[in-house]
């Protein structure tokens, strides 16, 4: 594998391989000095055209724990504001002699374009509404850590699937690993077509909750209200929010997940987010080890020519 652009690039076997490698990096992360020399002398550049806290920091920490050098390029501090094109920016950075580009952009497809312009590996850290493969990997890893496997698990993905790269990558990854996915959302927040999506669809969260192993909540953004996709966030919460009452409909061992940042009181009630069966902070912790595994698999085998 040259790049990580989509979870589809990995396939089920590739995801399993990432998870096996992640196991060893979780062990590294638990050491007193959580650092290995695997990528010493290599340089990983984060190219972020969209604001991000957790993903950028998570990649940076992953690279540092592998002893790679890291650089950050974010749009507000860069020549992109001076009108430099995306292509020129990528090629300029590459000319400095780097080993990998971690790309986040608000437009779908940018990592594919970048990969066609540069010679080094490109990792998609989120492109528009499209994909966020390392999020899907860390979610799979997190579920696997609790349940051993995703085979046969029933996962409900709830919320704004239409605009969600987390949902697109997650549906691909969960189903590749054998889970059954139901997406739950009002029709306005579903993609216009679900042809080819291996999912069930429901508009009734209450009827779904009793039968799931994992409920995966997506972030709801306030602007959906102004786009006439929702009457109000209050109505969204009433019908699709994981309130305490709805939480009680879940089977006793069902897990609650969210990619963050959470809107307490909108898609998830504040007290639910903090329950032990909520894996939200576990997801973040696993994110570092998963990204170490991805960087190691893309860069670890051979030094830069």
């Amino acid at each position: 594998m040259k790049h990580l652009l989509s979870v589809a690039d990995l396939g089920a076997d590739g995801i399993e391989e990432v998870m096996r490698v992640t196991d060893s990096f979780v062990e590294v992360s638990e050491r007193a000095i959580p650092r290995v020399p695997a990528l010493r002398g290599r340089t990983v550049v984060s190219l972020f055209y969209e604001e991000s806290t957790r993903t950028r920091l998570s990649f940076e920490m992953a690279a540092k724990r592998l002893s790679a050098d890291t650089m950050n390029f974010s749009v507000s501090t860069s020549s992109a504001k001076k009108g430099e094109s995306l292509r020129d920016t990528c090629q300029t950075i590459e000319a400095m002699g780097i080993d990998a580009l971690v790309v986040r952009h608000s437009s779908a497809g940018v990592p594919w374009q970048v990969a066609s312009w540069v010679g080094c590996p490109v990792i998609n850290a989120g492109d528009g509404w499209h994909e966020h493969p390392t999020q899907a990997l860390l979610d799979c890893y997190t579920i696997r850590g609790r349940r051993g496997s995703l085979v046969g698990l029933r996962i409900a993905v709830v919320g704004d699937v239409k605009h969600s790269r987390v949902a697109r990558s997650g549906v691909l990854a969960f189903t590749m690993l054998g889970a059954e996915v139901t997406i739950v959302a009002p029709p306005t927040l579903l993609p216009p077509s679900l042809d080819g999506w291996p999912v069930e669809v429901s508009h009734d969260l209450d009827s779904v909750l009793a039968k799931v192993d994992v409920v995966y909540l997506l972030r709801m953004q306030a602007e959906r209200q102004s786009e006439a996709l929702l009457p109000s966030l209050r109505e969204y919460t009433a019908r699709y929010g994981l309130t305490r009452n709805r939480f009680d409909l879940l089977p006793d061992d069902a897990l609650v997940m969210h990619p963050g940042p959470i809107n307490r009181g909108v898609e998830i009630a504040a007290d639910v987010a903090d329950l032990p069966r909520s894996l939200i902070t576990r997801q973040v912790a696993n994110g570092v080890a998963v990204r170490m595994a991805v960087l190691f698999l893309l860069l670890g085998s051979e030094p830069r020519a």
Binding site: A108, G128, W129, R168, P191, D195, G196
Partner: peptide, 15 residues
């Protein structure tokens, strides 16, 4: 075009 491909690719479509 809004449809199967726009939905899969995460690109806003026009119907």
């Amino acid at each position: 075009h809004e449809g199967e491909w726009s939905s899969r690719l995460g690109v806003p479509g026009q119907p």
